[in-house]
Design a protein around this nucleic acid. Structure first.
Lengths: 338, 338
DNA sequence: GCAGCGCATGAAATCGATTACATCTGAGTC
DNA sequence: GACTCAGATGTAATCGATTTCATGCGCTGC
C-alpha cells in the first residue's frame, strides 16, 4: 500500500493482462462478467487509481480545459468560473486556470503543451498571433476579439446599453455622463459607442469620462462630476464596481443618490442589490454564460474535430435591466432635495 | 507545420539525438555551445513545444498544483486564487481548480491521478479519510481540520475576534449579537467561541444568532434583531457579506448604522470600504495568504520529500482591525439620534 | 606512449497507460 | 465433423518525453 498501485499490479492480482484491466475499467461490457468482477476486486484491494499522464499521453488528450482571464481576482468572474468548473466536472474534465496576462511565452505554452484540450478565453486583449497559434478548440466568453478565429459568447452589450438609456430617458434624464472602461477593452468600447449612439438617437446629451472599471475610477469620476458647473443628472458606469465607487464618493461628498444623480451600473454583481442605495444595473447572466461556454467547449473537444459545426459563431445571451433604487426621476435644476 | 513537432523532429533537423535535444532544453550547460545553437534553431524552425503528458509520465510529476475550495464563486477567494496562481506561475507550475464539494469519488481521484503534485485546500469540511488518502503534499489555507495530516496557514481567528470585541468595548458597547456561520465550519466555530469567551472576559453580554456567512443570513439576522425587545447595540458578523446583508436590511427597516447599531464584519472584502456606511471589519491579508500557501506548497513539492521539515505545522498571519464608519459610540437607550 | 579522466553525445530503457492485432474458445451451421 | 464467427483475452507496439549507461574523443600527467 506504500507505493501507488499501477495497472500491472491490478492485472497480476486479478490474474489477467493489463489490457483486460484497462478494458474492464473503460469499457466494462467488452469483458466477461466474471473477469470484470475479479478486476474490480483487485482494483479495490490495491487502491488503484489511473495515472492520468500515461493515459493522456497515449490518448493524446488531457481531459482538461483551461480558463484564461485577465484578472482572477475580479469579482465578476467568480460565478463564471464556478459554472464552468461544474459543467466540466460533470463530464469528467478537470479545469485549469490562469491569468491571461502572464507573458507571451508562458501563455503560448499553456495552449500548446497538451495539458488542456480546450480553452475558454475571457480576454480580448491577447495578441491574436498567440491565440490563433494555439491549435486547440477555443471559445471566447464575455470579451472578444474579431481577430481570433473562434466562436464567441456573451451578451449583446449595445442592446444592454439601450435598456439603460431608455430607462434613464423614461425618468426624464436628458444629460448622461458615461464613465467608461479602458480604451483598449472591447466591452468598454462597445458600451461607450452604444451609449453615445443611443443617447444621440434619443436626443440626449452624452459625455464620456475615461475609467477602467474599478471602484477607484468610479470615485475619481465622481469627483470630476461634482466639480462640473453643469452636472449631468444621470451617470452610466461601465461596471458595477465603478458605479459603487461613484456612488460612494458622491455620498461622501454630500450628494444624494438618486436625488442629485441617478446611477446605473453594469454586470449586476452580487452586492448590487444590497448596496445602499441598491444599484440599478444591467444583469449579466454569469452562471448561464459560464455554463454555455463550458457546454460549447465540451462539444468542440469531444466532437469530431475543430470543424466548427458545433454552433453559431456568435452566441448571444439576453441582458436584463434590473431597476433598483439608484435611479430616480430627474429633479428640477437647482432644487434642493426633500 | 500542420502536425505538432515532437522532440524527434527537432533532433532529426538538428542532426542530433533526442537525448541531446532534451538536454539542450532542460540543462543547456551540459551540451556543447555549437550543438545547443543548432538545437535552438531547430526548435524555432519546427515550432516545437514540449508535450507535458510525456514529460510528466517520465518524471512522475505534473508541475501543477490543485486548489480546492468549497465554493469557487465566493468573493472571498478571488484574491487568494490570484495570488496562488501568480506564485505558482512564477516557478513554472500550472494551477488546477475545483470545487471541493464534487463528491467523494471524484475528489479522491483529483488527488490521486497524478495530474497535480500538491494541493492547497481551503475546505475543512472534507472527510479526513479522503484527505489523508491523498498521497500528495498538502497545505490547508484559511479553513482547517485537525484530523488532516497537513500544515495549515491562516490568521488567528480568536485574536481577530478579540480586536473586534475590544473595539466595541472601547465604544461603550456592553451587549453584542453575533451572527455566526455554519455550525460545522471551523472558522464559524472558532469565531463564535472566541467571541463568547472574549465578551465574557470583558464582562459583556453576548448572544449568538445562527447564520451561514451569506448576505441573506445577515438580512435575516437583522429582522430578528429588529424584533427584539432589548436590542443589542452592537453586532458582530462572521463574514463581511453577512454584515452587508445585516446593514442593508437594517437601513431598509429605518434604522441607522451606526446610530442605532454598530456592525463589525470579518474578511475585509473589496467592497467593505466603499459600502455606505464603510464597514468596520477584520482584515484578512488574502493575497499574502495565497502567496504564503503557494510558497509553502511549492517548497513541499520541490523539496526532498513529504518530510514536513519545510515549515511549522501552523503558520499564523496577523489579522488587523480596520475601523471605518459602521461602528460608533453606544447611544443612550431610547435616545433619538442627532 | 599510455593510463586515466572528463566531457559531449548517442542508444536504448523507461514512465504507465491504451489499443491494434493475434489467438483461443465455444457455439452454431450445414 | 469441419468450418465459420463472435466474443474474450493476451501480446506487444505505441504515445513522447527523460535518463541511465556506454562510447568516443581529446587532454593531462607521468
Amino acid at each position: 500500500m506504500t507505493a501507488r498501485a499501477r495497472i500491472k499490479d491490478v492485472a497480476t492480482l486479478a490474474g489477467v493482462s493489463t489490457a483486460t484491466v484497462s478494458r474492464a475499467l473503460s469499457s466494462p461490457d467488452t469483458v466477461g462478467p466474471a473477469t470484470r468482477e475479479k478486476v474490480m476486486e483487485a482494483v479495490k484491494a490495491t487502491g488503484y487509481r489511473i495515472n492520468a499522464a500515461a493515459r493522456d499521453l497515449r490518448q493524446r488528450r488531457a481531459r482538461s480545459i483551461l480558463i484564461l482571464a485577465p484578472d482572477l481576482s475580479n469579482t465578476f468572474f467568480g460565478k463564471i468560473f464556478a459554472a464552468i468548473q461544474e459543467e466540466a466536472s460533470a463530464v469528467g474534465l478537470t479545469v485549469q486556470i490562469s491569468d491571461s496576462r502572464i507573458g507571451r511565452d508562458r501563455l503560448l505554452s499553456l495552449g500548446y503543451d497538451g495539458r488542456a484540450d480546450g480553452i475558454v478565453l475571457l480576454d480580448g486583449g491577447i495578441d491574436p498571433e498567440v491565440v490563433n497559434g494555439w491549435k486547440l478548440p477555443l471559445v471566447q466568453l464575455s470579451e472578444w476579439n474579431d481577430a481570433y478565429r473562434a466562436p464567441r459568447l456573451g451578451i449583446d452589450n449595445r442592446a444592454a446599453v439601450g435598456l439603460a438609456v431608455d430607462h434613464l430617458a423614461g425618468l426624464g434624464h436628458r444629460d448622461i455622463l458615461h464613465v467608461s472602461g479602458p480604451r483598449d477593452n472591447v466591452l468598454a468600447v462597445e458600451r461607450q459607442e452604444g451609449l453615445v449612439a443611443t443617447a444621440a438617437a434619443r436626443g440626449m446629451r452624452a459625455t464620456v469620462h475615461p475609467g477602467d472599471f474599478t471602484m477607484e475610477a468610479g470615485a475619481e469620476a465622481a469627483r470630476h462630476w461634482a466639480a462640473l458647473a453643469d452636472r449631468p443628472s444621470a451617470v452610466f458606469c461601465a461596471s458595477d464596481e465603478c458605479a459603487l465607487g461613484f456612488i460612494s464618493e458622491c455620498v461622501h461628498a454630500g450628494f444624494d443618490v438618486p436625488g442629485d444623480v441617478s446611477v446605473v451600473g453594469f454586470d449586476d454583481i452580487d452586492f448590487a442589490d444590497r448596496f445602499l442605495p441598491a444599484l440599478t444595473t444591467i444583469h449579466q447572466p454569469r452562471a448561464e454564460m459560464g455554463r454555455a461556454a463550458a457546454a460549447r467547449i465540451v462539444r468542440m473537444v469531444e466532437g469530431p474535430g475543430m470543424a466548427g459545426d458545433d454552433g453559431p459563431d456568435v452566441e448571444t445571451l439576453e441582458p436584463m435591466l434590473v431597476v433598483r433604487s439608484s435611479t430616480g426621476a430627474v429633479q428640477a435644476r437647482g432644487a434642493a432635495r426633500g
